[in-house]
Write a protein that binds this DNA or RNA. Structure first.
Length: 900
DNA sequence: ACCGAATCGTAC
DNA sequence: GACGTACGATTCGGTC
């Protein structure tokens, strides 16, 4: 006969939370409740090895019991934040252990358990109810027993059968409901009768059997007890209605119409890799130790070194036959686009190969020529019919492009997948991902150090070829297994569509952009460098004169010494290590002394010279005179790209001086730069999410959104909006989506805090939909422990339930911003893929060069400027269908500055 | 010489 | 503590 274990999940979460001292991970996530819950769950699953199991959570806010008695559970406080933040983690644990979870709306978990227990019992099953709540004693009989792992752990007996009920309560299980109707239940706000305790209640139930019998023959009440019987009779008669009501409240329902039966809950083995990953994330080191040992990995016994064409062809044939291969290019340095491909690791299906490629390994005999390697690898790398997995497909595209091969075909980018799953984590080295997802310990990098952890791309020249093979080949060999696990994880996290439809197609687009690079006018840069340097020298001399002595203007400490100690200017803002000298501070001090203004000018020049003018020419590729940035496709936690070496997403634009730098980004002869940027994309997304009528109307009517906001906020007609009002509205519009506070607004606008508060209040009165969006975004994040974008991109929000107000507030602002910024990132990514595809489809030579969050920059042959602008507008506008239209501003010019 | 924290400043 | 997401330069104090 099957056995069914029913677990009172909510009950255990609360008990664990209150029973255990505060516990947190090193990152500050509270874990005491989820830890206690997990130990309980593991114990319960071990105890009887049930054939069926279900974990039942309370999902209902109000139930029929509240209709009977509004006071029912009325005094139960809301769960504190540091408990609530653990709810999603508990679900993660259940998911990883593959324990079915039931959360039925409108009914209490207790009744779900009652109903399932009764049904299973009717079918002749044995049932164990895992709970610490004595209410469930009413279910106990020969088939149904209660089990409390926490009681057992503390030495008290954990099992409750009919005999234990009688022993503990002095009554039979079938009398428990009537007993509790008289006794009441403090925890659930079911009132008892004053002066009536366990002994009296048990005596009454023993004599009468039921409350109905007792209330029918009240005169017999005094005979049931030894003393004070008349008083008791009066009290009971007076409380008759209450007692009858109590019986309805405490009786568990066994007759719910549930959309499932006990046999829906067949036990499944835990998802061990997932459990391991989750426990290590939660830092459950003790529980980790008790987990079954990880299965032997797919590590091939001895990697085969491919030393000739025949061996390579045989390996490729074997992998083609296996249908799925892992490929790991081994590079001579950290830059996939330019550093030479020095070897290729291949593997899958228990095989592992290493192909050394024409470089100097220690003692290596001459291997294949690059041409032989290219021709041999073509049947794998360019094959559309072989699934090929790689950790960082874009790097593989660069690496094989350098060899003359175009990577094609299906397969998972395990790094990209891992980043989508854990977008706030910065490092996703293959060794770490493999360890977490498939418990596979990859060999260490042959260079000896932990370079593999850091970049996984390390110089292997001078190392014996066998040692490189021993390290590299297993990395390729695990990829298909890792990919399969990650594909499942993507589906489970509902990220499959985002990955397949947006992120994976984008890899090739970004690869092309990086390969294309952008032309820069080096002469202009060098000219600026000299000019700015001269101006800085000049300013420096004047600053030293104003200070009365020379000092390092670039050193904030020395500057602070001059400003606040020597010149005795007032300290405006303090930092951890001393007074601040940032731009706001210096602006204020400039009112009192000439020196701060000079420092501001010096800093502006130093910034431009140091960060851009001098740095950019160093990154020009001598091969083509162009700068090739690296885009990180999942560089930001919100899904935005980031750009490094150099960062081309923060090239200055605001001041006249800084625009000169954009003028040095140019198109070669016969070509133009086209810039296309989404107009107000984040505000449009806010309009879409919030459905706020005023915000939606502003975009539908193509109004100036800042003017409209000013008119609404200050209660004037749009044509009565002053420049000052519009300026404030602009700050509001930009700040709202970031969780702007009155303090922030007052700082930004240099207004009294009370005035800023008034403005914010008026804004939210006029834009009530926006306020609702903000509240909803926070509430959703709290409930789910995560935020999602319109396309389902997810970001965990562990600190949203923190007790630390600073952490919690910061998390709430993130919860407001992430869906907006992230949805904008999604849309721009879709647009990039569409533009790229449309250009190819229409056989245009124009190519994408840059993405700057809401802007795309293309290089376009002169004759294509018009059609490309039309194409880009069409594809960007059509990238998403929101409740408000998307608009795109276009421009072209010989330089990036002109294109704007 | 190298590393990391702190501060500052650029973009969207 | 106060407006989200990045990257990077410089200084400065620590280590080797």
């Amino acid at each position: 006969m099957p056995t069914l274990t029913l677990i009172d999940g909510s009950g255990f979460i609360f008990r664990a939370y209150h029973a255990l001292p505060p516990l947190t991970t090193t990152r500050g996530q509270p874990t005491n409740a989820v830890y206690g819950f997990t130990t309980m769950l593991l114990k319960a699953l071990r105890e009887r090895a049930p054939t069926h199991v279900a974990l039942v959570f309370d999902a209902a806010r109000t139930t029929f019991r509240h209709e009977i008695d509004p006071g029912y559970k009325a005094s139960r406080p809301e769960a504190p934040d540091d408990l609530r933040s653990q709810f999603p983690l508990v679900r993660d644990v259940a998911r990883a252990l593959r324990v079915p979870v039931i959360e039925e709306p409108h009914v209490e978990a207790d009744d779900v358990i009652g109903t399932l227990a009764c049904r299973a019992r009717e079918q002749g099953w044995d049932v164990v109810v895992v709970t610490g709540d004595k209410d469930f004693a009413q279910l106990v009989d020969g088939k149904v027993t209660l089990y409390d792992p926490m009681a057992e752990a503390s030495g008290r007996g954990g099992w409750t059968g009919p005999a234990e009920v009688e022993k503990k309560l002095g009554i039979k299980p079938e009398q428990v409901v009537d007993y509790m109707a008289i006794l009441g239940d403090k925890i659930d706000d079911v009132p008892g009768i004053p002066g009536v305790g366990e002994v009296t209640a048990a005596a009454l139930v023993k004599r009468f059997g039921t409350i109905e019998a007792m209330l029918a023959r009240p005169d017999e009440i005094p005979q049931a007890v030894s003393r004070g019987g008349e008083k008791l009779k009066e009290k009971i008669v007076a409380a008759e209605d209450r007692i009858r009501m109590n019986k309805q409240l405490v009786a568990l329902r066994c007759d719910l119409a549930l959309p499932f039966a006990p046999d829906a809950f067949g036990r499944q083995p835990p998802d061990d890799p997932k459990v391991r990953a989750l426990f290590s994330e939660l830092e459950f080191s003790r529980l980790l130790k008790d987990l079954p040992a990880p299965p032997p990995t797919a590590r091939a016994e001895r990697p085969e070194v491919l030393r000739d064409r025949a061996a390579l062809d045989a390996a490729v044939a074997a992998l083609r036959a296996a249908g799925r291969a892992g490929i790991r290019p081994i590079l001579g340095g950290p830059a996939p686009r330019t550093d030479p491909l020095v070897g290729v690791a291949l593997g899958g299906g228990g095989r592992a190969y290493y192909l050394p490629l024409g470089h100097r390994y220690l003692g290596a005999p001459a291997g294949l020529s690059r041409e032989e390697a290219r021709e041999g690898l073509r049947a794998l790398v360019e094959a559309e019919d072989v699934v090929k997995d790689a950790h960082d497909v874009k790097a593989a595209l660069h690496a094989f492009a350098g060899l003359g091969l175009a990577w094609r075909g299906p397969g998972l980018d395990t790094e990209l997948a891992s980043r989508l799953l854990l977008p706030t984590r910065r490092e996703h080295a293959l060794a770490d991902v493999a360890r977490e997802r498939i418990s596979c310990e990859l060999p260490r990098d042959p260079s000896g150090g932990d370079a593999a952890r850091k970049s996984e791309r390390t110089a292997v020249e001078g190392v014996e070829v066998e040692r490189v093979a021993e390290w590299a080949a297993p990395c390729a060999a695990v990829l298909p297994d890792l990919a399969a696990v990650l594909e499942r994880a993507l589906e489970e996290e509902r990220l499959g569509v985002l990955y397949r439809e947006v992120e994976r197609p984008l890899v090739a687009v970004i690869f092309e952009m990086e390969r294309a690079g952008i032309a820069v006018d080096r002469g202009a840069m060098e000219g600026m460098s000299a000019e700015f340097g001269k101006a800085m020298e000049d300013l420096e001399a004047r600053i030293h004169a104003a200070a009365g002595h020379p000092f390092n203007v670039a050193s904030t400490r020395e500057l602070a010494q001059v400003l606040f100690t020597e010149l005795e200017l007032p300290v405006v803002k303090r930092l951890k290590t001393g007074p601040s000298t940032d731009v706001d501070v210096l602006e204020k001090l400039a009112e009192q002394h000439p020196l701060p203004r000079l420092v501001l000018e010096h800093r502006a020049l130093a910034k431009l010279k140091g960060t851009y003018v001098d740095a950019l020419p160093l990154l020009v590729d001598p091969a083509d005179g162009r700068i090739h940035t690296t885009f990180h496709q999942a560089g930001a936690a919100t899904g935005r790209l980031s750009s490094t070496d150099p960062n081309l997403q923060n090239i200055p634009i605001r001041t006249e001086l800084s625009r000169r730098i954009r003028r040095a980004f140019v198109a070669p002869e016969g070509r133009w730069l086209v810039s296309a940027d989404y107009s107000q994309i984040e505000l449009r997304i806010l309009a879409h999410y919030s459905k706020d009528p005023a915000l939606v109307a502003a975009f539908e009517n193509r109004e100036d959104v800042h003017t409209r906001t000013a008119a609404e906020t200050f209660g004037v007609a749009p044509d009565a909006v002053t420049p000052d009002m519009r300026r404030i509205a602009k700050v509001l519009n930009f700040g709202i989506a970031y969780g702007l506070s009155a303090f922030g607004l007052s700082q930004r606008l240099d207004l009294p805090a009370s005035e800023a508060q008034g403005i914010i209040d008026r804004y939210f009165t006029r834009y009530a939909g926006v306020r609702r969006y903000i509240e909803q975004a926070i509430e959703d994040a709290r409930k789910n422990g995560e935020s999602r974008t319109l396309y389902g991109r997810v970001r965990a929000m562990p600190e949203i339930g923190s007790r630390n107000p600073a952490l919690r507030n910061a998390a709430e602002r993130t919860a407001i911003n992430t869906p907006i910024q992230g949805t904008a990132a999604d849309i721009v990514k879709v647009a990039m893929v569409r533009v790229h595809e449309a250009l190819a489809r229409e056989r245009l030579e124009a190519r994408l060069l840059l993405q700057v969050h809401d802007e795309l920059v293309l290089e376009v042959p002169e004759r294509e400027v018009e059609p490309v602008e039309a194409l880009v507008r069409r594809e960007m506008v059509g990238a998403a269908k929101l409740d408000v239209p998307l608009e795109v501003e276009l421009g072209h010019g010989r330089s990036w500055a002109e294109a704007h």
